[in-house]
Each structure stands twice: as structure tokens, then as C-alpha cells.
Design a protein around this nucleic acid. Structure first.
Length: 550
RNA sequence: GCCCCCGUAGCUCAGUUGGAUAGAGCGGCGGACUUCUAAUCCGUAGGUCACAGGUUCGAAUCCUGUCGGGGGCGCCA
């Protein structure tokens, strides 16, 4: 019994197959098995009968009844009762024996319970944040960082091999502008109009030796500035708990003969997707659904940012990553059609390049929305945000809502209500469990967890809060699968909160230490241990700490 | 003008491969601390799921349109 709910689902599927007899399952979606939302809806409910109705030509409730009989036969003593309800749901009520076996499965799974659902596991490259090292990270980058990092963790638990990567632009005109801005500040001048105005540029000017020295080329100044800023960015990411396996330099795409960029270009040319026009070199992205063709090499021969991106995609593929995930800001969405087109032009299956659009974080202070232009230097940095409300609250805030939705971050509210962040409620549940288990003592915990024969007594019946907590814990595999497949870390944030609520209800209703009779105490200790393990795992997926005390 | 995302309780948001009586946190109101952690709990008020049509036995969810908010439409990055 590695996944009790999956086994239950299998029993229902088999029963449905028997009812269906020879007729094909056709294109029906698989039947669902859900936790009952209300007490009278049983412990689990399935809509299988309603899905079978069209095929069998019978009333859903009639089918549900027959389905119930089959399921009852297969489950034996694990099933306490079943009932047909509503338009044709089959509600199942499971026995306490089933719940005890389920707890055994949870404990045996340990930190890996719910892991490995991906079939097959893929080699995935997840590139995110990738903010140019022309400034420090802004608060909004905190959303991308939290999203990508959590997604990487979730995909890994789900059974994929994920490499997280930060692509940084260390070549091209923005970098040159940074260098010119630093030089201007070093000379006591204003940066150029299209340069970087922030106060940090003046700091860079004083930090970099020779910034004012006319014999030192601007490119050298720029490179030094990039190196400093990149280190600051890395420092912020470490503080934020966001890990990158690799930092990838754009410059390397232009290096060597032939450079990766030249090779990608040659490949596209061979495939017949490239042409010359107006002195520039174009990629015929319209072949693959883009609005218009795109320039790869400008009429001066200089490659566009797009050309570098194309070479970068090719490089990812050459490194053996079959799937490329690319969370980007909503302001980039117009860029994605051409990326996808280029990916196809390189001979790839377009479905293997997955751009994920992350909507904006609107910073609000008072009534006005804070403008965030890096060039003008008017922005709230991620470090400032972390100073204000802390890593855990920031990460949870950034992850609690869908990335498809714009997020309003009211700084005044964040400051004043930081302690109201749901993350503390979740962490508190974890701390409580730790406290209970500490009170019980390691030795007692070990024995309670090890010997499930000692969990049941003739008189003991589980409390409904215990059952509900177990159902929540048992749903982790499907929650992880859902979060991974939908690229939706916020599902785990919601799950963590629900788990904490069930834990709090359990804590309220079921005394653990000294519970009578002894088998009840043993069972509850084991349940606490399983819950603590899982809550720590889930918090870990979000990149939030799981404190032993608060 | 064209394209993308969003519109759910006072606020911030879950819930979209169509299912049962739409949920949570915060805020409001009324209660509970000699207790395994009160950063908690209990009770209560609060909804035309933006609007209008359509498909369906069944729609917050799918389709069409309208309104509102955000973003994008460079040989910039």
C-alpha cells in the first residue's frame, strides 16, 4: 500500500470496467475520486457512474448502486458503507482499519511519500529570473525567483530531472549603457538620457578603479560593473533561498569560431528558414505562425538579442534537455511567438518549449502605484522587501496566488500585517507538532511509529478530525502531480494552508500526550510524526522554513 | 486597431480537463487563555462568481458578445 488513495481509485476503475463489460471506455475522462466535502458526502466520492451513464444507457444512480456493490466486494472490511447520492455520485465511507493501514503507508513513504508520480520523468531546463545585471534585483523579481525555485522543487519531487538556470546578459547595448552611465558618474556628470540613473550607479563609479580614467575603455568599466552587480544578485538569491544550478553568460554565445550563435544561424540557414533583406539577415518566423519575420543580424552585422536567444535555445537542446521551461514576465509575452517559431525552425517539437507567463507584481504604497523603472532608478529592491517582511513571508506571499494573476503588493499593508501572513499559521502548526513530539520523547515516538499493531484497541474509534487529517495527508501525491503538471506552485501553498487547518482541528479535538487508551496515544503520536514530516516537505517545496518552535 | 492575462465576500485571494448547499485568510461583531505552544480556537454577519446571451440533465468553470483593469505589438534588451 504505497499510495492508499491511488489503490482506492484503482478499485473504482476496476469496478467501472466490469460494469462496462465489453464496451470501450472511449474518450471519456477518467473518473474522479475526491475527498467528500461535507460529512454526509462520505470520506471519498466518485463521479464514475455519471461518466458511465452515456455508454451504458442507464440512469446514473442505478449505475452508482451497482458500482457500489462491486467496490464493496473488492474492499471487504476496508469499506464501512457506501451510498448513492445527488445526481449519481457514489460516496464511500472507509473503516478505521483502512485509515490505520493508510497511516502505515504514509510513515513508510516518509519524505518520499507523494514523490515520483511523473511518468516518464523528463530532463528539464528551467530558466528563470534572468534579470540583466544592470541593477540589483527588484521586488517584482521576487515573484519570478519564488515561482521558479518552487516549481523546480516540485518538478523534482514529482520525478523529473530539473536543472535551474539564470541567463544573464553581459554583452550588448544595455551593458554598454551601464558602462557609459558609470563613467559619467565617475566624471561627475549625469548619465546619458537612455542610461541608468539610479543611485547605485554612483556607488559603482566609486567602487570601480579607473572608472574616471579615459584610458580605460568603457567596455572594461561595464564588465566590472556587471561582475559587481551579478555578485549582488547572487547574494540576494542566496538570502532568498533560491538556488540556481548554473549561471549562463550570454557572452559565451558569441565566443569562439564558429560561435554557438553562428552555428545556430548556419543550422537555420541549412533548413532554409533564413533570408537576406535590406542588408539584414532575417528568420522566416511567419512560417511557424509569427506575425512577421524577425531580424537575426542587423544591417551592420551585429546580432540581435533574439539571435542570441535562438542560439541559447539550441545550446540548451545540445546539452541534452528535452524540455525547456521559460517563465517570463507578462511584458515579454509578445516575444514568445517568435521564440517558439525559432524553436520549431531549429527542428524541435514546439510543445517542448514552454513559455510561462508570470503576471506583474504591482507595488502599491499608500494609494499610488510605485513606478519601477530600473533606468530611472525608482524601484523597491528585493533586499528592501526582505528587510521589511522577511524571507518566509515574502516567499509565501509571492507563491500564494496563481502566476496567471496580477498581484498587488501594498507595502504599507505588508509592513503592518506581515505577522498576519498565513505562512505563520502554517509554521505554527509545524512548531506545535514539534513541541508535542518533543514532549513525548524520541524513544516513545520511535516505538509508536514502528509498531502499528499497537495502534488499535477494540474500543477505540478514530475521531473525525483524525480521519480528515489523514485524508489530507494522503492527498499529497495528487496535489504534487497537479502542481507539477500545471506548473502551479500556488497549489502547494494552498495545500499547506489546508493541511495546517486540519492539523489545528486535530490538535483541538484530539489530545495526544496521555491519550487513553494507550493504543490511541500511540496512533496519535504516529499521526503527528507523519504530519510533521509531510508539512516540512511541503514547506520545503515552497522554500519556506519549518521551525521547531516559534 | 490587433494580440495575451485578469474580473469570485469590505480587502487579499483559492476554486477552470463542467458536478452535490461557491471556500479560506485578513478585517467586522460576540465569546474562550491555571490547557500537548492563544502566532490559537469557537460562534456570527458578509456573494446577481463583472454584465448579457448560448451549449448542457447540470456552468464560477465551456462558447459568443459587452463593460472594466493590466500588459504587449522595434534592425531595443
Amino acid at each position: 500500500m504505497t499510495d492508499p488513495v491511488a489503490e482506492l481509485r484503482m478499485v473504482v476503475a476496476n469496478a467501472a470496467a466490469q460494469l462496462r463489460g465489453g464496451s470501450q471506455p472511449d474518450a471519456q475522462p477518467p473518473a474522479r475520486l475526491e475527498r467528500g466535502r461535507r460529512a454526509e458526502q462520505g470520506h471519498y466520492a466518485t463521479n464514475a457512474a455519471m461518466l458511465l451513464a452515456p455508454t451504458l444507457g442507464l440512469a446514473p444512480r442505478e449505475i452508482a448502486q451497482a458500482l457500489g456493490e462491486h467496490v464493496a466486494g473488492a474492499l471487504g472490511g476496508d469499506l464501512l458503507a457506501y451510498a448513492v447520492a445527488g445526481p449519481g455520485f457514489l460516496n464511500l465511507e472507509l473503516s478505521d482499519d483502512w485509515y490505520r493501514k493508510a497511516l502505515r503507508a504514509l510513515l513508510d513513504g516518509g519524505e518520499r511519500f507523494g514523490a515520483g508520480g511523473a511518468d516518464p520523468g523528463e530532463r528539464i531546463l528551467l530558466e528563470f529570473v534572468s534579470a540583466n545585471p544592470t541593477a540589483v534585483l527588484v521586488a517584482a523579481s521576487g515573484r519570478h525567483a519564488a515561482y521558479g525555485d518552487a516549481l523546480a522543487r516540485i518538478l523534482r519531487l514529482h520525478g523529473h530531472s530539473v536543472s535551474s538556470e539564470y541567463y544573464f546578459n553581459d554583452a550588448g547595448s544595455q551593458i554598454r549603457r551601464l558602462g557609459e552611465s558609470v563613467r559619467a558618474r565617475a566624471l561627475g556628470d549625469e548619465p546619458p538620457a537612455d542610461g541608468y540613473q539610479g543611485a547605485y550607479v554612483a556607488d559603482l563609479a566609486s567602487e570601480i578603479d579607473g572608472a574616471a580614467d579615459p584610458t580605460v575603455p568603457v567596455d572594461v568599466i561595464a564588465a566590472k560593473a556587471v561582475a559587481i552587480l551579478l555578485e549582488r544578485i547572487k547574494g540576494t538569491l542566496v538570502r532568498y533561498g533560491v538556488h540556481f544550478d548554473t549561471f549562463f553568460s550570454e557572452r559565451t554565445l558569441h565566443a569562439g569560431t564558429p560561435s554557438p550563435l553562428q552555428r545556430a544561424l548556419a543550422r537555420l540557414r541549412e533548413a532554409g528558414h533564413v533570408y537576406d533583406h535590406d542588408g539584414a539577415v532575417w528568420l522566416r518566423t511567419t512560417t511557424f505562425g509569427d506575425d512577421k519575420d524577425r531580424v537575426l543580424l542587423r544591417s551592420g552585422g551585429e546580432p540581435t538579442y533574439f539571435a542570441a536567444d535562438v542560439a541559447y535555445m539550441e545550446n540548451k537542446r545540445e546539452r541534452g534537455f528535452e524540455r525547456q521551461l521559460l517563465p517570463v514576465g507578462a511584458d515579454h509575452h509578445g516575444y514568445l511567438a517568435r521564440l517558439k517559431a525559432a524553436f520549431q525552425a531549429l527542428g524541435n517539437d514546439p510543445d517542448l518549449l514552454e513559455p510561462l507567463i508570470i503576471q506583474f507584481v504591482h507595488l502599491v504604497e499608500g494609494d499610488a502605484r510605485a513606478a519601477m523603472s530600473k533606468r530611472r532608478g525608482e524601484f523597491v529592491t528585493l533586499d528592501e522587501l526582505l528587510d521589511e517582511i522577511g524571507v518566509d513571508a515574502t516567499r509565501y506571499f509571492m507563491l500564494q496566488s496563481s502566476h496567471e494573476r496580477t498581484l498587488d503588493l501594498n507595502l504599507d499593508l505588508a509592513r503592518s500585517e506581515s505577522s498576519e501572513n498565513p505562512v505563520y499559521y502554517i509554521q505554527y502548526a509545524h512548531a506545535r507538532l514539534s513541541s508535542v513530539l518533543a514532549r513525548v520523547g524520541e524513544e516513545r515516538v520511535r516505538s509508536a511509529v514502528a509498531v502499528d499493531a499497537a495502534w488499535s484497541s477494540p474500543a477505540g474509534e478514530l475521531h473525525s478530525s483524525e480521519r480528515q487529517l489523514l485524508r489530507r495527508l494522503l492527498s499529497l501525491p495528487e496535489e504534487v502531480a497537479e502542481a507539477a503538471e500545471r506548473r502551479a506552485p500556488h497549489r502547494m501553498a494552498a495545500y499547506a494552508l489546508e493541511l495546517a487547518q486540519d492539523l489545528t482541528a486535530f490538535y483541538r479535538d484530539c489530545k495526544v500526550v496521555g491519550a487513553e487508551p494507550p493504543p490511541t496515544e500511540a496512533f496519535r503520536i504516529a499521526l503527528c510524526a507523519a504530519a510533521q514530516t509531510q508539512l516540512a516537505v511541503v514547506l520545503g517545496l515552497l522554500g519556506v522554513s519549518a521551525p521547531a518552535s516559534m
